[in-house]
Design a protein around this nucleic acid. Structure first.
Lengths: 166, 166
DNA sequence: ATCAACTTTCAGAAATTACTGAAATTACAA
DNA sequence: TTGTAATTTCAGTAATTTCTGAAAGTTGAT
């Protein structure tokens, strides 16, 4: 397979994957393009390569920087901004987990707290309170597990976690 | 807080959470409704409660059954079908992981295999091949880790995993 | 066999999400 | 400072996803 073909297939596949992870297609494609690029690319390079508008490129680059999946790189004497991708896969996954935990798990925990102990007809509210307790217990465990996970490093994951879990 | 209010808040929150997990809002709301219901509910009950069309109720119930998040329950002498939710949170998460692994990770692994060893200009294709190798290594590890995870049981997760990871 | 209750399907409509293009703003080299 | 290249913003449009409503299909009691 030649390089151009492989590149397109990878960008396409990464885009599809990303859209299931709270990262929209273009955002993931930009990340993919930067991942396989040996040099930093400018917003213009990216917009040309992916055939998107500069507005779109800009918005998604900023989102990628918010997620710590892409960094700005300034070249001395150049006005243009360049971008590089986070290439350590463990860092990538870790940062996605951090973002999603913040946007999903934490709000859910807050709601569950408010829903503690509902009153009403016996049968219904008993079942309700039981479910809320279960969900809250599970969510809290998931929360602290993910905290520990995201504090551990790449080698730990690649090396130890696998053995522990097998 | 009274029961009705709590119920609505929970269905709402669960719906929002689900839509980040490959489960659309209605699908997650149906699951939430069944979760907190002490009895099995019919499609009609669900459609009335959530104010959705029967087509929508039907399609999402089938999807939930495909994911093993909801089961059919037949009552003797009754023509109508009733539904109950999987209430064990570990089972719920496990089934979601199984589905998503199948729909996301496995296709990605297949693409990565096809992309092994791309030819072209030195610098570009070297970087490309390196990234593909890294991603593939990581994805394979994730794949087998998730396999192990989904084969372990609830108590194992709730009890052991936490301690191991701390 | 018939019929009504129930379930499924699916084309088009509605809702949601993402993108463009153009204008506004910023920032830096001269 | 000025001029201009680069970046950002955002209203309107386009694309995608989800839902409805109505029609077709199933099923089982009579």
């Amino acid at each position: 397979m030649n390089f151009e073909e492989g590149k397109d297939r990878f960008i396409q596949a990464w885009g599809a994957l990303g859209s299931n992870w709270g990262i929209n297609r273009t955002m993931a494609q930009i990340h993919a393009l930067l991942l396989i690029s040996p040099q930093a690319l400018s917003a213009e390079d990216i917009k040309d390569e992916l055939k998107i508008s500069s507005g779109n490129a800009n918005m998604n680059l900023r989102a990628l920087m918010d997620w710590n999946l892409v960094y700005k790189e300034l070249k001395p004497g150049e006005r243009k901004e360049y971008f590089v991708a986070e290439k350590d896969m463990w860092e990538v996954v870790k940062n996605i987990i951090i973002q999603r935990k913040k946007k999903e798990l934490e709000p859910m925990l807050r709601v569950l707290d408010e829903l503690s102990v509902v009153e009403g007809m016996e049968e219904q509210s008993d079942e309700f309170n039981k479910v809320i307790r279960d969900v809250k217990l599970f969510a809290s465990k998931a929360d602290s597990t993910l905290d520990s996970l995201t504090k551990s490093d790449s080698n730990w994951f690649v090396g130890t976690f696998m053995k522990m879990i097998k």
